[in-house]
Design a protein around this nucleic acid. Structure first.
Length: 514
RNA sequence: GCUCCGGUCGUCUAGCGGUUCAGGACAUCGCCCUCUCACGGCGGAGAUCGAGGGUUCGAAUCCCUUCCGGAGUACCA
């Protein structure tokens, strides 16, 4: 039987990394096995539904390259894929009727106040809280008829069998058992007629032929209810896969104080979608061998549920940075420019940096201002594309995120880049430097503009000055040309800069040598 | 409180009764490469496998107990 899995978000907020991981697992499993990846919108909670949120989900998933074979946006054999629409079609009403008639569900007329009082009572007596029957589980038909006639509102609850053991076979954790007397009767249909997750998701999973119910481990305690539902209907049970969650450094659920949780913020910070996926896949899963950085195809090929870990994993930003660097280095020279340009021009990336301000990790140092980051990035976007194409590859192996290209490339675009004063103090005061600069100034016009010729030229200076090392030549020139002490290879950078740009900078440097 | 789940270097993990006084990766430290910074290469430090008992010739791996962490305990998902 072919694998069918579904990503079923409830559009109530931003798409964070935990949800992306959920979507990724299903995407990977479906693609690995040649199965079907389904998108289903679970919008049964009308009080929390948020249309912007749905837009956020679609945009994020699209960026991440996680696609679907069936869903509200593309249709499919089990349309509609939106639970609010399915409810209107009467799908849940039809199936709850089956349960009611078989005696696996019942109407309960308790008011919210009565339920609150019951819970209070249970807490005081230190017993399980929850609805284990109340007066309605075993009410007579005439009591129910009377309440209905009186116009009382009701919910429909699932009748969990008593005095038995409920077993959930979980693919990752194995057999999990519950004493059915510890499982309360969940609401299946709310007063407003909408189904709850417990009901809608299971009914849809069955109808849509879902083979693997993959979800976060926070669902484990509800799993016995779901198993009972399948048994009440007499349906074949899918495979339950309760995946470990991603937690913060303190072992608690990931939240804002652990850093960015919104997936789009990782996009804005300059992480490649595949790098994020590669990294997230590695939390709680391993291919079984020692591979870590993998291409998309390798990841799909390697993904297997047997490699899933039962324990929660922490989000280690350093490892994400490492893996992002690897994937940036893997971008071909022909694609690099468009990858960076697309990043710089992206609407959300710009919005993110425009509003970004963060205290510097070093006390006393200036805060990191997003608009500065953006300004540097914009220099790339507005420069001549051939020039940019010659610059970017030099930076490729020195960069961690796409945002770093802005800082790394800045000196190429400024006629007079800002100078690192400490570097000036260190190098420009040396005796040979003034002569070095004027000689270079004279030579750059007559020597070919190429890596080889500049290499030969500066090495000739070294010989002429009888210097033991190349450093005293290279370092001052680098500072004169770039304002910095670190960066791409000097000869390469000179060849890209060309004689005209170098001339202006060397003249300025000469003035600084006093 | 009750019910479940989890527990191998700081972090992500390999490990499925012996070939492991535990392998890889990130981070960290050192060396090499070298015009700098990176990249890359090599090496070091870092886990008595949460703890205590068993079972066994032999346990991180099986059993029991215990501790710690987490989740659920909604007419939210």
């Amino acid at each position: 039987m072919s694998v069918r899995v579904r990503f079923a978000p409830s559009p109530t907020g931003l798409l964070h990394v935990g949800a992306l991981r959920d979507a990724l697992h299903k995407f990977l499993l479906a693609r690995h096995s040649g199965g079907t990846n389904i998108l289903r919108i679970e919008d049964t909670d009308r009080t929390r539904y948020n249309a912007d949120s749905e837009k956020e989900f679609i945009e994020t998933l699209h960026w991440a390259g996680i696609d679907f074979d069936e869903g509200p946006h593309i249709g499919g054999p089990h349309a509609p894929y939106r639970q609010s629409v399915r409810k209107e079609k009467g799908i849940y009403a039809e199936w709850i009727q089956v349960l009611l008639s078989k005696g696996f569900a019942y109407k309960a007329f308790d008011t919210p106040e009565e339920l609150a009082a019951m819970r209070e009572q249970q807490t005081a007596n230190k017993v399980n809280t929850g609805y284990f029957g109340g007066i309605w589980r075993d009410a007579t038909p005439s009591q129910v008829a009377e309440a209905e006639a009186a116009g009382k509102t009701y919910v429909i609850r699932q009748r969990i069998p008593r005095d038995t053991t409920i077993v959930v076979e979980d693919l990752i954790r194995g057999r999990i058992e519950w004493d059915s007397n510890t499982v309360d009767d969940p609401v299946l249909i709310k007063t407003d007629g909408m189904p709850t997750y417990h009901f809608a998701a299971m009914v849809d999973d069955h109808i849509m032929g879902i083979t693997h119910i993959m979800r976060g481990e926070e669902w484990i305690s509800s799993a016995p209810k779901h198993v009972c539902l399948f048994e009440a209907f007499g349906w074949d049970k899918p495979v339950f896969v309760h995946c470990p969650v991603i937690v913060g450094n303190d072992g608690k659920k990931l939240s804002k104080r652990h850093g960015a949780t919104r997936v789009l913020d990782y996009k804005a910070q300059g992480y490649l979608p595949h790098a994020l996926k590669n990294f997230i896949a590695l939390i709680g899963w391993s291919p079984g061998d020692e591979r870590e950085a993998m291409t998309e195809a390798e990841l799909i090929e390697a993904f297997d549920l047997s490699g899933m870990q039962p324990s929660p994993g922490k989000f280690d930003i350093d490892k994400l940075k490492w893996i992002n660097g690897i994937h940036i280095r893997g971008v071909s020279a022909s694609e690099l420019v468009s990858v960076v340009l697309q990043y710089v021009c992206d609407e959300y990336v710009r919005e993110y940096w425009t509003n970004f301000v963060e205290e510097s990790p070093m006390p006393g140092k200036a805060p990191i201002v997003g608009t500065d980051v953006l300004a540097k990035l914009d220099k790339i976007a507005s420069a001549d594309s051939a020039y940019v194409a010659s610059i970017l590859p030099m930076l490729q192996e020195r960069v961690v995120t796409l945002a770093d290209f802005g800082d790394g490339a800045e000196f190429f675009f400024d006629d007079l880049p800002s100078m690192d004063q400490k570097a000036v103090d260190k190098w420009f005061k040396q005796e040979h430097v003034r002569g070095l600069f004027s000689r270079l100034l004279a030579d750059i016009g007559r020597v070919p503009c190429s890596v080889e010729s500049y290499d030969a030229l500066l090495k000739q200076y070294q010989v002429d000055l009888s210097l033991e090392k190349l450093g005293p030549i290279v370092h001052p020139v680098r500072v004169a040309l770039t304002g910095k002490t670190a960066g791409p290879g000097l000869f390469e950078l000179m060849a890209v800069l060309g004689p005209d740009r170098m001339k202006v900078r060397l003249e300025r440097a000469l003035e600084l040598c006093v």
